[in-house]
């Protein structure tokens, strides 16, 4: 039995096939480019300015009596102190394996920051035999605020608005860099 003419005209839908080859080429090119330019070495940095020596500045500082928070890394302990005795000197014993007790040091520095929220400077005094690894670990404890740390509120000098401090002591200077041990 023949179909009606209208039914005969209706042809089967043609299969549409997208040509994926150019898209594939583009993807492979992009992946190659990304892999070539990708930085597999994830580096970060801790900034430290060179301490400036100026007699006029020293005289001014002596008058103002700043906190000048100092962290001295000794062989067996870490001493947190201020040359103007604005804080009570604290000795933090190293752990049994000889490494710095970073947690206690961090807690001690947080307590000081809470007392002096506008203070940003810290002076680090390592020993000759202190390793670079220890220095970076102490710098981490002194600079960064963790998410679990208590909130420290600082008044923004420009806007006058109370803000949450993002760093603990962001400016680290090596105290004995220019010769004194």
């Amino acid at each position: 039995m023949l179909k009606r003419p209208s039914a005969r005209r209706r042809s089967q839908p043609a299969e549409i096939q997208i040509n994926l080859v150019p898209m594939l080429d583009a993807l492979v090119t992009m992946i190659s480019f990304l892999m070539y330019t990708m930085a597999f070495l994830s580096l970060t940095m801790v900034e430290s300015p060179l301490p400036l020596v100026s007699s006029a500045q020293n005289q001014q500082q002596l008058k103002q009596r700043p906190l000048q928070l100092t962290v001295t890394l000794d062989d067996h302990d870490v001493v947190v102190w201020s040359p103007f005795d604005l804080i009570k000197q604290e000795k933090i014993q190293n752990r049994q394996d000889g490494t710095v007790d970073v947690l206690k040091l961090h807690e001690s520095l947080i307590a000081i920051k809470q007392k002096f929220p506008t203070e940003d400077k810290i002076i680090l005094v390592p020993q000759k035999n202190t390793s670079y690894d220890t220095i970076v670990t102490v710098l981490d404890a002194a600079k960064a605020l963790d998410k679990t740390d208590p909130v420290i509120v600082v008044k923004n000098e420009k806007t006058g608005v109370q803000e949450q401090a993002k760093n603990l002591f962001s400016e680290v200077v090596f105290g004995n860099l220019l010769g004194d041990d």
Binding site: L41, S42, L43, T44, M45, V46, E47, S48, P49, L50, P126, Q127, K128, N129, T130, S131, Y132, I135, V136, L139, F174, N176, L177, L178, G179
Partner: peptide, 26 residues
């Protein structure tokens, strides 16, 4: 050791390099 680093930073300071970026692994 810090003794080595200190000599390097002292030398750099003498050559008018004022800011040091101590690199580490993130």
């Amino acid at each position: 050791k810090y003794d080595t680093l200190r000599k390097i930073m002292y030398t750099a300071g003498a050559a008018q390099f004022k800011v040091f970026h101590l690199l580490a692994m993130r």
